[in-house]
């Protein structure tokens, strides 16, 4: 079992929902990323999703688009992101890291070169938004041979007929996109997610992480009742934007506070599940 699989299995065994925060690597500056990653862990992250900046983030809303732009002002590349992970691992061997981004930077590096580099620095899994399982020939094999998990997305529009490919090509967990829209969208329909996740659980063999549109403790609490993991991105990243002018100290305070809200919500949901 991979580090990611083990982490999720252990959490499940102890009745806990995984908290997976997302930040964009290099946002607001490359210097900030490592400290932010350690802060996330300190505040209750079980897994970190680290965004790889791409010039054309077509599935992202304005919040993450701007984060990517901030990172790209410093020319943060996939190589740089791998370097962040390498240095992160000097202090943290435990927390799984999922790289999230778009396919082209990985294509530019080459699947095998990327898989080699990613596994050697301690990346655990990769999620490329514009790579559906159908196109993952070569990609899947390259990552698999280096023990890297492949996280695929499933959405409200995904028919059951597509889930087989997700089971076969994917591993680690499946990322359920809780709404039709881009990252940071507002209207998450809790009842709809509940119905969908019930549908998915009967077919998917991997744990389910729920993300998109989770902006507060209340929603996180509701999602924790449904999924194995809760993924939060734009609500954290928007705090980087809001506090950028004030500096890193204020960014840490704001992110720490928000993480505490999410962690608390998940713990409450887990406690409640435990009683039932």
């Amino acid at each position: 079992m991979s580090r990611l699989q083990k982490t999720l299995a252990n959490l499940k065994a102890s009745g806990k929902t995984a908290l997976i925060p997302y930040i964009t690597a290099g946002d607001p500056t490359p210097n900030a990323t490592l400290d932010l990653m350690h802060l996330l862990v300190e505040k209750g992250a079980d897994v970190i999703e680290l965004g790889v900046p791409f010039s054309d983030p077509m599935a992202d809303g304005p919040v993450i688009q701007k984060a990517v732009e901030r990172a790209l002002e410093h020319n943060v590349s996939l190589d740089d992101v791998l370097e962040f992970v390498r240095v992160f691992r000097e202090k943290d061997e435990k927390t799984p890291i999922v790289l999230m981004g778009y396919l082209n930077p990985v294509e530019a590096m080459g699947y095998e070169a990327f898989a080699n580099a990613a596994s050697s620095v301690g990346v655990d899994a990769v999620l490329t938004v514009d790579m559906p399982p159908e196109e993952s020939v070569g990609y899947k094999e390259a990552l698999e041979s280096k023990g890297l998990d492949r996280v695929f997305l499933v959405s409200p529009t995904t028919p059951n007929s597509r889930l087989t490919a997700v089971n076969e090509k994917g591993s680690g967990f499946v990322y359920y996109v809780s709404l039709k829209g881009v990252t940071g969208s507002k209207e998450l329909d809790i009842e709809d997610v509940a119905n969908q996740v019930t549908r998915l659980k009967s077919t998917l063999k991997h744990p389910i992480g729920i993300g998109f549109g989770i902006r507060d403790g209340h929603t996180a609490f509701e999602m924790a009742k449904l999924g194995d993991a809760v993924i939060v991105g734009s609500s954290l990243v928007s705090l980087i934007e809001a506090n950028e002018a004030k500096g890193l100290y204020d960014i840490h305070l704001a992110i720490g506070e928000k993480m505490t809200e999410f962690r608390g919500a998940l713990d409450r949901a887990d406690a409640k599940k435990g009683q039932e």
């Binding site: 396919l103 938004v129 514009d130 559906p132 695929f152 959405s155 529009t157 996109v177 039709k180 829209g181």
Partner: peptide
């Protein structure tokens, strides 16, 4: 060519 699209669009 191919289909390199976000999952939400795959069914459409």
């Amino acid at each position: 060519g191919g289909i390199f699209a976000p999952e939400t669009l795959m069914a459409a």
